[in-house]
Amino acid sequence: MSRRRALPTLPPPFPAPFLTTLHSLLAQPVLVGGTSDQRLRARRAVLSQSGTFVGHRPYVRGDDLRRIDWAAYARTGEMFVKQLEQEERRTAALLLDLSPSLLAGAPPRRLAMLRAAAILGGLALTHLDGLTVLAPGAGDLAVRPFVGVHALAALLTHLEALPVVEVASSDAIALVLKRSVPGRVHWLSDFAVPKDIERPLQALRRRGVLVHGWLPELASDHHVAANGYVRVADPETGEELVVPMDDRFRAELERQLAMLATQQNRLFAQAGAPLVRWPVPAVDDWRLQSYWLIVAGCVA
């Protein structure tokens, strides 16, 4: 029996205590440590010869002599430096899942997703050159670039204004591929249907897009505490199910949830993409260590 019920509403995602915690996280010295930055620069230097050629520019003093296009110099007598794609990758992208399924849970998974997006976006604005927020299905708000630390407030406003829309994973990835988003793509979702993310992950891998999966994890993703007759509903389809809950069914359901988690991990591993499961803190939990895993996962 399918019957659409009123979807749950979200509390304000970014109250003042969270902003305090957010600014504390972005101000942590460990996040901006030289190790990570220098490693990125060294990696960029090593991989500079293997980047994708995108054009020439005139040589200026200080340019790496290995990037001079000697063939062009022989033809023209002027020195040009080969400009590679690697230089554009100092940005990051947030791919947000706006589907109603993230409204489920206590606290709602969407709330945790928005806060995680705020932290990831803040890190990108602080330590990278720019940030692109991709929200498939959000209409005019689907693609929005942000540059500089001063854009943090605009980022939070943008995140809070994102609607709840139903969009397929394939459509979301199509938007990524169409925009040729440089840098790492942080995909925040519940990945509730593994078969819907398998093909998009493989497509992104073929296109060389680095994907980082973020899964705000709820306690109900592993354990079921309800007793008696339980009426469960899918926020996306409205489909309902009434089940008499007992120990036997609870054990079987937890086994199925464990299989789902294993399947999600396997798909991301096959795609060479990390999947970070972030235990969602309580709504009023503003401690730093509750959000530290996001920062640690981003650095890793």
């Binding site: 993230l102 008696g228 007759y229 469960v232």
Partner: peptide, 24 residues
């Protein structure tokens, strides 16, 4: 009427609930 308590909740894992029913 079904016995109490009756809990109503949202879940993105309705497929897992159905799979558990099928397994049992």
């Amino acid at each position: 009427l079904p016995s109490r308590p009756r809990t109503q909740t949202w879940t993105p894992h309705l497929a897992q609930w159905q799979l558990a029913l099928s397994a049992l």
